[in-house]
């Protein structure tokens, strides 16, 4: 690990001042400390933001939910309001990492996670995310766990977060504060596909700080849930996952929010699946037909062709679990 200076800030103004001087924010630290030890990350100053007042879960004026950036994964998952209104968020959180890590890691840090691609972590391997222009060892390497959607010739790494898949499905908004004031970024614009700049992973500007993730209000009743498929049943990253939320009224699906994880370079929203569902009556045939659209545009690599079928089946199963059959 490279040496670094350490400063702890007590308010947002102090954090932004330290951020403006080039400091790197640290919250739970579960990812950052690990990557610093591997020398993948080499910040010269850590700015400890754990004392900032960003720890609340609140209902917004419009009936949505606002989860403070420093709410720990364990706290967010167990929060009565989260459990009652968005089970998909609680389930995604509790299917991620381990109880110990969930006691440390925060919501803001979770969506700032970097990829778990083994070549990214290995500082002797070529990786355009870590060393732009050095190449991508995964393209011709062992790429069983890599992306089938959203990849470029520069990078095929998946995004590791589970709860980010739920946030993508629910069309969350990331609240930020920075030197130029406050702003909100739609989740679809927050995590960046690699394109020609794989080293840029989030739409965060220098010195900006995440304050909260906001879930917009959705019509009720809303049923939702998260399915994760991985090599181990627990404490493992997803090979494929599906986040589903459905609003059914009068026997007809009025609202459908669907996204998949483990298959894309970013959490993969599935608008074609959503469109196929809306206006229809729940049925076994409908789940199967909609899920067939989940892998549209997929481009497998040498070792991950199986993810195409796995993705469709995961989406179909989760539609059945959440939607049942009429």
């Amino acid at each position: 690990m490279h040496p670094f200076s350490y400063v702890k800030v007590s308010d947002i103004a102090g954090a932004l001042a330290a951020g403006r001087r080039g400091g790197r924010y640290i919250a739970g630290g579960t990812m950052l400390v690990d990557l610093m030890r591997e020398t993948v990350e080499r910040p010269s100053t850590l700015v400890d933001i754990s004392a900032l007042p960003l720890r609340d879960v609140t209902v917004t004026a419009r009936g949505g939910l606002r989860i403070g950036a420093l709410v720990r994964m364990a706290e967010a998952a167990a929060h009565p309001k989260v459990r009652a209104t968005y089970p998909v968020i609680s389930q995604a959180l509790e299917l991620g990492a381990s109880p110990q890590l969930r006691n440390m890691a925060t919501i803001g840090g979770n969506i700032m996670q970097r990829t778990r691609c083994a070549y990214f972590r290995d500082v002797t391997a070529a990786c355009n995310k870590r060393d732009p222009g050095s190449g991508c060892a995964a393209l011709g390497g062992f790429n069983r766990t890599h992306a089938i959607l959203g990849a470029s010739d520069q990078c095929v790494a998946t995004h590791p977060s589970d709860v980010a898949v739920a946030f993508a499905a629910l069309e969350a908004i990331v609240r930020l504060v920075g030197p130029d004031g406050r702003r909100g970024v739609a989740f679809a614009d927050f995590l960046l596909p690699p394109g020609s700049t794989p080293e840029r992973e989030q739409a965060v500007r220098p010195g900006e700080l995440i304050t909260a993730v906001e879930i917009p209000a959705l019509p009720r009743p809303l049923r939702s849930g998260y399915l994760k498929v991985s090599d181990r049943r627990s404490y493992e990253f997803a090979l494929t996952s599906a986040a589903v939320a459905l609003h059914v009224r009068g026997g007809v699906i009025r609202e459908a929010k669907v996204a998949a994880g483990g298959v894309g370079t970013v959490p993969w929203k599935l608008p074609a699946v959503e469109r196929r569902l809306i206006g229809e009556r729940p049925s076994e045939a409908l789940w199967a037909e909609a899920a067939r659209l989940a892998a549209e545009g997929a481009r497998p690599l040498a070792h991950n062709k199986f993810k195409i079928e796995l993705l469709k089946r995961a989406v179909e199963r989760q539609l059945r679990i959440v939607g049942g059959t009429a």
Partner: peptide
């Protein structure tokens, strides 16, 4: 406190030299 601006999400530009 350092005055450098590392933003280490953006790795340095010159690859072979920086790795060395």
């Amino acid at each position: 406190m350092s005055s450098e601006l590392p933003d280490s999400r953006v790795p340095p530009e010159a690859e072979p030299a920086s790795r060395l």
